[in-house]
């Protein structure tokens, strides 16, 4: 039984011009202690699926799923009051913009102690001790002094450390990191990723890393799920994925890595992710796929078998079938 199990999750947003499907029939599993990376371009629905699971989407969103369980709790049927006991406690999340994700009106200490008080009911002195401990754990120098700082007095990297300390305050079983390094300097990025990986080692929590950076994936993740236009199009362990991608999109993403470039110009994927009005009839990637034929443009592909990484493709790459054709 996996820690997080999602089956056939869809999220629709009510917009002024009708319904927009941001997440389309996504299945996802995360085991205890595992690092899963969800990769995709902007607008591929990777954050939305996790926000839906956390119950953090705005009221314009409609979430449907066949199954959505976390640690034995059915997230679909529980009331929002029950969900609040889990969210921020066993199930925590950090976000892309550390500077704007912390409340500017309160000290970081106040914000971290708030979580400790609400979920664990710790007393004043215990909260102080635990907060200092957590700051030490995430590598914030001079923790006792930093507790009384306001977010604007700290750097982006420090704020992300505060966010992480706040997220792990109640020893969560699963931490979702939504592009935790995108807004940070490259040097700080590595530090934050190392911190997340080592915290996973220490605490044994599961970690979902949402990113658009294949480099981050290669360094950190164990298993990778690739999303495109709201659909999961491929899922594999990290090494085989980098070696033998089955979906043309995954392959194109990997080709676009600077390390893999063979020519002066970096390869790109022409076109953009389809939006609300230009959703193709068949495979969603077909307009940008260099292998697409008439079938791809007319019929939506079903996910392939697990051996082929559940690739949503009529003609998965690196297979005998593809070589033959």
């Amino acid at each position: 039984m996996s820690l997080l199990r999602i089956r056939n999750l869809s999220v629709d947003f009510a917009t002024a011009s009708g319904q927009f499907r941001a997440v389309d029939a996504v299945d996802q599993d995360v085991d205890t202690g595992e690092i899963l990376a969800i990769v995709g371009e902007s607008g591929s629905g990777k954050s939305v699926s996790m926000l839906a699971m956390m119950g953090l989407l705005p009221w314009t969103a409609t979430v449907t799923a066949d199954e959505m369980t976390f640690d034995g709790h059915n997230l679909l049927t529980m009331s929002s009051a029950e969900r609040r006991k889990i969210v921020g406690n066993d199930l925590a999340m950090i976000f892309q913009e550390p500077m704007s994700s912390l409340n500017p009106c309160f000290t970081v200490g106040w914000q971290i102690k708030e979580a400790l008080r609400i979920h664990l009911g710790l007393g004043r002195a215990e909260r102080q001790t635990r907060a200092v401990e957590l700051f030490e754990q995430v590598g914030i120098p001079d923790p006792a002094k930093r507790l009384s700082a306001f977010p604007h007095q700290l750097s982006g990297g420090m704020n992300q450390r505060v966010m992480i300390a706040m997220a792990i305050a109640c020893k969560p079983k699963l931490l979702i990191a939504d592009e935790p390094t995108t807004a940070l300097d490259v040097t700080i990025q590595a530090q934050i990723l190392d911190l997340l990986a080592s915290l996973r080692e220490e605490t044994g929590m599961g970690l979902v890393l949402i990113t658009h950076d294949m480099g981050v994936v290669a360094e950190t993740a164990e298993r990778v799920s690739v999303q495109y236009a709201g659909q999961k199009i491929e899922e594999q362990a990290v090494e085989p994925l980098f070696k033998t991608p089955y979906h043309p999109y995954t392959s194109a993403l990997l080709d676009a890595l600077p390390e893999r470039a063979t020519e002066r110009l970096l390869p790109t994927i022409p076109g953009v992710v389809p939006g609300q009005f230009d959703r193709p009839a068949g495979c969603l990637f077909s307009p940008r796929c260099k292998f697409a034929d008439a079938t791809c443009k007319s019929t939506a592909p079903k996910p392939c078998s697990a051996e082929l990484g559940h690739a949503r493709c009529h003609y998965p790459l690196n297979t005998d079938q593809r070589i033959a054709s």
Binding site: G55, L56, A81, R84, G88, F95, N103, A115, I118, M163
Partner: peptide, 20 residues
């Protein structure tokens, strides 16, 4: 964003709206 953070902390709506 920080309101989303507050919600991700599992705070009650009253606390989020009235304090944060």
């Amino acid at each position: 964003d920080y309101i989303r953070t507050a919600r991700a902390k599992g705070l009650s709506p009253g606390r989020i709206n009235g304090i944060h």
